[in-house]
């Protein structure tokens, strides 16, 4: 119960910070995705349970707030969690590298799916402009935040799910 409430509080904090602070900090036209990085970092902690449910819930929450279709957010965040779970078992010796890989994969999947959706159904977008002005700067910012967030989430995982002696 303590772990559930703690993760819930952190998810809400991440969403609020994303809406009020992080989305205002732009590099060219890109911005970081704190929620995605939080999910990626949590999913790499093998002891944290029910991450798929958290991914779906966070996707619904962000999809409800954002103008992007909710199913794209749910799909992208579930993919991030799945990728994190997969890499947690394979690259367990280099957790930071795993986090960067999941962050990169998640960013490309989320922004790629939104780009395809907007280009198909809403407006014409230039792929090169999107890549250079939005995707790459966002990826860079996400990497920066991931490096900072990694030790914090690892400590959090140790506190929420302590190893039995």
């Amino acid at each position: 119960m303590r772990a559930f409430l703690s993760i819930l509080a952190l998810v809400l904090l991440a969403v609020f910070l994303q809406l009020t602070v992080v989305s205002r900090i732009n590099l060219l036209s890109g911005s970081a995705d704190l929620v995605l990085i939080f999910l990626a970092a949590m999913s790499l902690q093998e002891r944290v349970r029910h991450m798929l449910l958290w991914g779906a819930a966070v996707g619904l929450l962000v999809g409800g707030i954002s103008a992007a279709p909710w199913y794209l957010c749910v799909g992208a965040y579930l993919t991030v969690v799945g990728l994190g779970r997969l890499l947690a078992r394979r690259i367990w010796q280099a957790p930071l590298l795993a986090l960067l890989v999941v962050t990169m994969g998640g960013t490309l999947i989320l922004q790629g799916s939104i780009f395809v959706y907007r280009a198909l159904f809403e407006t014409a977008l230039s792929l090169s402009e999107v890549f250079s002005q939005v995707v790459l700067p966002s990826l860079f910012l996400n990497f920066l935040i991931a490096v900072v967030l990694h030790p914090l989430i690892r400590d959090l995982g140790d506190r929420l799910y302590p190893l039995e002696a």
Partner: peptide, 14 residues
């Protein structure tokens, strides 16, 4: 204005 869209693809405010 209390927030901005989390996606950089969308220029929306809340």
């Amino acid at each position: 204005v209390i927030g901005r869209d989390p996606s950089p693809f969308y220029r929306y405010v809340i």
